[in-house]
Amino acid sequence: MAPDSDPNSTPTDAEAACFEAGIKFGSLYHQFAGTPISPESAPSLATAIEESIENQPHCTEVTVDVRDDELAAALAEATADYTELTGRFLEVEIIVEYEGCEVVTRMEMEDGYPLMRLESVRGRE
C-alpha cells in the first residue's frame, strides 16, 4: 500500500468495474476448464460460455472465439475425438459496465499462457 493511501477509502467506480471484470474471468475459466470439446461442439460451447457469463451483473458483452487451429493440433495427437477445454483454445473479450465506466478485458495466449488483461477503462473515475 502506498504510504499516503487511505486504507478506508471507497473504491472508485473504475476500480469496481475492473474488479467485476476479474470476477467474470475467474468464473469463466474455472467453470468451463475441463469441459469436453471437439470441432463439432466448439461453436455451441462458445455460445454457452458467452451466454452464461453475460448473465452476471454488470456484464454487457462476452465474445468467445475457439482457436480451431489449436484444437485441431491437440486432436491430431489424441486417441479420442475430443479433448479437454483449456485456455489455449480460447480467445475471449469481456465488457463490463459499472456506474458509467466501461471496462474491456481480454484473454489471449501469450508465451504459452492464457493471459487475462485489462485492455481499457472508459468513463468517469
Rank of each mutant, 00 (worst) to 15 (best):
H30A: 10
Q31C: 10
Q31K: 10
F32W: 07
A33T: 09
A33Q: 12
G34C: 02
T35R: 06
T35I: 05
P36T: 04
P36N: 01
P36L: 04
P36C: 06
P36M: 03
I37M: 01
I37R: 00
P39F: 01
P39E: 00
E40W: 05
S41R: 06
S41H: 03
S41C: 03
A42E: 08
A42P: 05
P43Q: 01
P43M: 00
P43E: 02
P43G: 00
S44F: 09
S44D: 14
S44G: 07
S44W: 12
L45S: 01
L45E: 01
L45A: 00
A46T: 04
A46S: 09
A46L: 06
T47Q: 13
A48F: 07
A48L: 07
I49V: 13
E50I: 15
E50D: 13
E51D: 13
E51K: 14
E51Q: 15
E51Y: 08
E51V: 14
S52C: 11
I53R: 00
I53P: 03
I53Y: 05
E54M: 15
E54D: 08
N55K: 15
N55H: 11
P57T: 15
P57C: 07
H58M: 11
C59D: 15
T60D: 05
T60S: 03
V62H: 12
V64H: 10
D65A: 15
D65K: 15
D65T: 14
V66A: 13
V66L: 03
R67C: 07
D69P: 04
D69H: 06
E70G: 10
L71D: 04
L71V: 07
L71R: 06
A72K: 09
A72I: 08
A73M: 05
A74W: 02
L75G: 01
A76I: 06
A76G: 06
E77T: 11
A78Y: 00
A78K: 06
T79G: 08
T79L: 05
A80R: 04
D81P: 07
Y82P: 03
Y82K: 10
Y82D: 13
T83K: 04
T83N: 00
E84C: 06
E84N: 11
E84D: 09
L85T: 02
L85V: 08
L85M: 05
T86R: 15
G87V: 04
R88C: 10
F89N: 03
F89I: 03
F89Y: 12
F89Q: 03
L90G: 05
L90D: 02
V92A: 09
V92F: 13
V92R: 09
V92S: 09
V92N: 14
I95H: 12
I95S: 15
V96W: 01
E97T: 12
E97P: 14
E97H: 12
Y98C: 00
E99L: 10
E99M: 11
E99N: 10
C101G: 06
E102F: 01
E102L: 09
V104P: 00
V104A: 10
V104R: 15
T105S: 14
T105P: 03
M107V: 07
M107L: 11
M107H: 09
M109W: 08
M109N: 13
E110I: 04
E110V: 08
D111A: 11
D111W: 09
D111V: 02
G112W: 00
G112C: 08
Y113E: 07
P114V: 05
M116A: 11
M116C: 13
R117V: 09
R117T: 12
R117L: 08
R117I: 12
L118N: 05
E119R: 04
E119F: 04
V121D: 01
V121T: 02
